[in-house]
Simulated assay, not measured.
Amino acid sequence: MNILDTIKTAKLKEVALLKSKYFYSFLEEQPLFNSATHSMKKAIENSVTGGIIAEFKRKSPAKGNINLNADVVELTQGYANAMVSGLSVLTDFEFFGARKTDFELARESNSIPMLRKDFMVDEYQILQSKAMGADVILLIAKILTSNQLKSFTNLAHDLGMEVFLETQNETEILENLDLPFDLIGINNRNLNSFEVSVDNSIKLAQLLPKSSIKIAESGIQSPATIQLLKANGFDGFLIGEYFMKDEKPAEKCKNLIQQLL
């Protein structure tokens, strides 16, 4: 199995356990379940600072430990002060080292749009995301059927959240052009080989309608790469490791944005 298959198998077991402990009614009773959401799509459309979605993650399967002991409140507030368009916060413990309170603390500390970054395999996680105060959920085309993508998207929209669809090849894009996603990400990293190719993302972006809000993901290491991607139709840029591996991630983020202005 490749890493995505491994993660999906583990996630299905994790969700089954959660469903046995915390019923749907428990999620619906959480204080943030009925809270208003913030539009990441509009934030990127209206951005004057480059459409950056800054990610908080402690480790990854591709890179191992990145910044295990980072302070989620200090760091995400630093990202917000740098005028990013939104935050992405990992919530997976087994593969990405997320702590149970990472998303909660980031939500309490920030009012800008937040993406819950996890591997959605069950509608339960969509309701859980709303209960956590997420504004956007991630749906990965590679691990979901077309029916799942449609039903998860509809449920997220019914709950007032936006959908960030992640794709990585031509088939995943062409098969989902009718899906009413709000943001579409093209991952520069091949999730089977971990190779990074910006050229592949540029080629794939041409398949999308001009009206799509296109987000480049993974392997973005410089203002020059962002400018190249922007010139080829990308509106936003999800950046995690480049910031997180630095001693001062928020400063790194601020410096990158200043170079884009």
Rank of each mutant, 00 (worst) to 15 (best):
Asp5Thr: 10
Thr6Lys: 08
Lys8Tyr: 14
Lys8Trp: 12
Ala10Met: 04
Val15Lys: 12
Ala16Glu: 15
Leu17Asp: 11
Leu18Ile: 06
Lys19Asp: 06
Ser20Ala: 13
Lys21Trp: 03
Phe23Val: 05
Ser25Lys: 13
Phe26Ala: 15
Glu28Leu: 15
Leu32Ser: 11
Asn34Glu: 15
Asn34Cys: 12
Asn34Gln: 15
Ala36Met: 13
His38Ile: 10
Met40Asp: 14
Lys41Glu: 12
Ser47Pro: 09
Gly51Trp: 01
Gly51Cys: 09
Ile52Gln: 05
Ala54Lys: 09
Glu74Asn: 14
Glu74Ile: 11
Glu74Trp: 07
Leu75His: 07
Thr76His: 05
Gly78Asp: 11
Gly78Tyr: 07
Ala80His: 06
Asn81Gln: 15
Asn81Ile: 11
Ala82His: 04
Met83Ser: 12
Val84Leu: 10
Leu87Gln: 02
Leu87Tyr: 01
Leu90Thr: 09
Phe93His: 05
Lys100Val: 09
Asp102Ala: 07
Glu104His: 12
Glu104Val: 06
Ile112Gly: 10
Tyr124Glu: 07
Tyr124Thr: 09
Gln125Ile: 04
Leu127Ile: 08
Ser129Pro: 06
Gly133Thr: 04
Gly133Val: 03
Asp135Asn: 06
Val136Gln: 05
Val136Cys: 10
Leu139Gly: 01
Ile140Leu: 05
Ala141Arg: 00
Lys142Val: 07
Leu144Lys: 03
Thr145Ala: 00
Thr145Arg: 02
Ser146Trp: 04
Phe152Trp: 09
Thr153Arg: 00
Ala156Ser: 07
Ala156Lys: 00
His157Phe: 11
Asp158Thr: 08
Met161Leu: 07
Val163Cys: 10
Phe164Gly: 09
Leu165Gln: 02
Glu166Val: 00
Glu166Tyr: 03
Glu166Phe: 01
Thr167Arg: 01
Glu172Ile: 00
Leu174Ile: 03
Leu177Asn: 00
Ile184Leu: 02
Ile186Met: 00
Asn188Arg: 03
Ser193Ala: 12
Phe194His: 08
Asp199Cys: 08
Ile202Leu: 07
Ile202Lys: 03
Leu204Thr: 01
Gln206Glu: 08
Leu208Thr: 00
Lys210Ser: 05
Lys210Val: 05
Ser211Arg: 06
Ile213Lys: 01
Lys214Met: 01
Lys214Ala: 01
Lys214Ser: 01
Ile215Phe: 05
Ser218Thr: 07
Gly219Met: 08
Ile220Leu: 12
Ile220His: 06
Ser222Pro: 03
Pro223Leu: 10
Ala224Met: 14
Thr225Asn: 10
Ile226Leu: 10
Ile226Cys: 14
Gln227Tyr: 15
Leu228Pro: 15
Leu229Ala: 04
Ala231Gln: 13
Gly233Pro: 00
Gly236Thr: 08
Gly240Thr: 12
Glu241Met: 07
Lys248Val: 14
Pro249Thr: 11
Pro249Cys: 12
Ala250Cys: 08
Ala250Arg: 05
Ala250Pro: 04
Ala250Leu: 04
Ala250Trp: 11
Glu251Ala: 12
Leu256Gly: 06
Gln259Glu: 09
Leu260Trp: 02
